[in-house]
């Protein structure tokens, strides 16, 4: 999803989307570090263990995963065994890779739908130690699947329009900072 391939309004939208996700992810990781440190500090220095930290850490990490997967996909963090595909003539390789993407897209959309059902059916529960509805925590799977679906669809469409397989380094959403 390279900025130069897209019309300007879409570029702005993509940049905003990436900026928001990156900020959430960085804050999430920072929160994990701070809370885990506080947990040790309160048990050993203060002598009053935190009751909520363990649960909060688990759920923050799951949300980091959900929000980070789409970006990770586009940045080529997910590796497959491409050896056999590379043995094929370029045209056939492209078709096979795109077919794989269609399968993944279909799967992630299905998971998003059932992820919604899962969160909805278990919405009556609350987390154990923090006063949050399990719906807000369980829905992370649906959100993450939708985001991956979005990124896979974007890759699929761009590859289709260009007719060639983009290099993995090309699939970098431009860095905002620095």
């Amino acid at each position: 999803m390279q900025a130069r391939d897209l019309p300007p309004p879409l570029t702005r939208f993509v940049r905003g989307y990436v900026a928001i996700l990156e900020t959430l992810l960085i804050s999430g990781v920072a929160a994990v570090v701070v809370i885990a440190t506080l947990q040790v500090f309160f048990r050993y220095v203060v002598g009053a263990s935190l009751s909520w930290s363990e649960e909060a850490l688990r759920y923050i990490m799951i949300w980091i995963t959900s929000l980070g997967l789409g970006l990770a996909y586009s940045r080529g963090e997910m590796i497959g065994m491409e050896l056999l595909v590379h043995l094929l003539p370029p045209r056939a390789a492209l078709v096979v890779t795109q077919a794989g993407r269609v399968l993944v897209l279909a799967m992630m959309l299905t998971i998003a739908w059932y992820g919604w059902k899962f969160a909805w059916k278990t919405r009556g529960g609350t987390a154990t130690a923090i006063p949050v509805s399990m719906f807000l925590i369980h829905i992370s799977v649906a959100v993450g699947s939708l985001l991956v679906a979005l990124h896979v669809a974007a890759t699929l469409v761009l590859t289709f329009c260009r007719g060639t397989e983009p290099r993995s380094t090309e699939f970098h959403i431009p860095e905002i900072a620095e």
């Binding site: 009053a48 263990s49 009751s51 130690a129």
Partner: peptide, 16 residues
């Protein structure tokens, strides 16, 4: 459980 154990003065510590 937190209420029960705080009531007797221990330091309740969550752990898997």
């Amino acid at each position: 459980f937190l209420a029960v154990w705080n009531a007797v003065g221990v330091n309740p510590t969550p752990m898997a």
